[in-house]
């Protein structure tokens, strides 16, 4: 174990320095945090003008919105990543992503630049990061004195989907039967 000033973490092992392979990430700000999304995931950035709430949905789900004729499912990125700071965000700025053929819109407070990170700047998961949260991150890069977490979109969606299911299921037999209230 060593404490490396350079990356402010008790990292168990240092990843071997590799050359080349730069990765581009689109940065967004949620509350005071900045995270990155792989650029190939991000299709569009837009403002939502109307949001239809979804009853009974897990809190991460903000609702449904109409984006140029297609319905997108809007998610509170802050809630997904457990970045709460109390007041609900009124932001309706969204980053449109597509995953497995479904269209989602991740609600963020602000968008930033596209950051290109070199492979050698890649670090392993900082030890202080919550294990739950760490699962939602695909990678970490050293950046500008701190580090940049890259969101694992697939893991994020999967987590939200499971929330919906566990809250609801008690062993029913199909789309519409529920629980023991038979």
């Amino acid at each position: 174990m060593s404490f490396d000033l350079a990356d402010f973490s008790y990292s168990r092992q240092r990843p071997p320095a590799r050359s080349g392979a730069a990765a581009s990430h689109f940065t967004v700000r949620i509350k005071s945090q900045i995270v990155g999304l792989p650029v190939h995931c991000v299709k569009t950035v837009f403002y939502l003008d109307r949001l239809t709430p979804v009853p009974l949905a897990p809190p991460e789900v903000a609702g449904l919105a109409n984006l140029r004729g297609r319905i997108v499912t809007a998610l509170h990125l802050d809630k997904c990543l457990r970045i709460d700071s109390g007041e609900p965000s009124s932001a309706l700025l969204a980053v449109g992503i597509t995953h497995n053929g479904d269209d989602y819109a991740l609600l963020v407070d602000d968008t930033g630049d596209v950051i290109v990170s070199e492979e050698q700047d890649r670090v392993s998961c900082p030890a202080h990061l919550d294990a739950d949260l760490a699962e939602l991150m695909a990678a970490f890069y050293r950046h500008d004195g701190g580090f940049l977490s890259i969101v694992d979109v697939a893991a994020l969606i999967k987590r939200v989907s499971q929330q919906g299911e566990s809250a609801y299921r008690t062993g029913e037999s199909g789309n519409s039967k529920q629980g023991k209230r038979r």
Partner: peptide
């Protein structure tokens, strides 16, 4: 619906109405 919402069971789909708003379609049996 996307998986997370389909699993709620009570909605069978989503649609856009003539005025452009997105609404949920209820599943009567559920």
């Amino acid at each position: 619906l996307v998986g997370a919402l389909a699993r709620l069971g009570v909605f069978s789909g989503q649609t856009i109405l003539g005025d452009g708003s997105a609404v949920l379609i209820l599943d009567p049996a559920a």
